[in-house]
Design a protein around this nucleic acid. Sequence first.
DNA 1: GACTAGGAGCCAA
DNA 2: TTGGCTCCTAGTC
Length: 376
Amino acid sequence: MHPVLCHHFETAAVSRESDCYTQSAAEEPESYFTDTSHLTRADKAMVSPGCGCVGSTVDLPLITFTEFPHSVSGSRAWEEDTKPPRGLISLPKHTVAERSSQGVFRPCLDMLLSEDSSCFLKKTETVAPLPTFKTLEHCPSINSHSLGFGAPSGLEEQVEEHCLEQVQSMVLGEVLKDIETACKLLNITPDPMEWNCGNVQKWLLWTEHLYRLPQVGKVFQELNGKDLCSMTEDDFRQRSVQCGDLMYAHLDIWKSASGMKERCKLGDNRIEGTEELWPEADSSCTGQPIHLWQFLRELLLKPHNYGRCIRWLNKDKGIFKIEDSTHVARLWGIRKNRPAMNYDKLSRSIRQYYKKGIIRKPDVSQRLVYQFVQPV
DNA sequence: GACTAGGAGCCAA
DNA sequence: TTGGCTCCTAGTC
């Protein structure tokens, strides 16, 4: 990772309201990223606002991000380090005793890493099952003692190595889930090579929206997935000086993830749970239309990506609030190929669910607040 | 002005 | 037939 970026990550810690983080930004992250000329392609993909990690602390226990590969087949993207490195990730100490690793890790990893799976593939490409630590203390490298700065013993190294593999697997799983979610929402296949022109445009629109990019769809018009995949980073830059590199990086992640899926199919490097991630009969990949209520639920189930525009008020009761009606309507419009979609129309569709008993207004009616009749 | 509610016509699958 | 889009009026906050 770019050293300046590492420095930035050391000094800033911005968290998100949708999870358990506290906000303690030491500086204004957006301003730093205004000038991205000094960042690598992967840096940009990592810090883009759309992935919800601008200026976030990207620290994982004893992992230092020293370099980002340009593809999954690249060399190891991280190094262990026993010293307090630049960009060292430290878990919030007050939460360690209170939360399970699922509760602490998964949101962190979601938030920080969801956009760049390639960063976490080891050179061995061996993927271990997702870890299920009962407490953080069960993961030696997370244990506060191992945050010491002395050189680890051989045993400690092995233990840390094992733990890191588990963390990587967990991260990878989350990245794949993110892509799966996007596929569902966009009704496209995970493999960019299979995209038609329409799919490419959807993906571009989505990526623009995700990363708050200027519109670039026009410069990629009439390209199908194969065309897109055959383009080099320079080709992307030529078409869009401003964000071609980021688009290329994002596509690279998708291509890499698709490659992972193929390997899983072949039985190599099997990842526990990938059947869930890409079920062959998944309606998202078979052209089945998605219903609005399903779409809303998908957004709600990805709070780190969409929590700014829609979030649960009471998940148990299925009560949710649309925080940004324009944004949600636009996302729905992208999904349905309805550029003229707005909240007026979307809300009319939601109200159709009243009669069907799918969605209703909560007992205490509030603006932009709805309730699933059958909680998720 | 933004949101809520519902009627009605239309279209595509 | 169904689900959703679109346009509309009217009322509320």
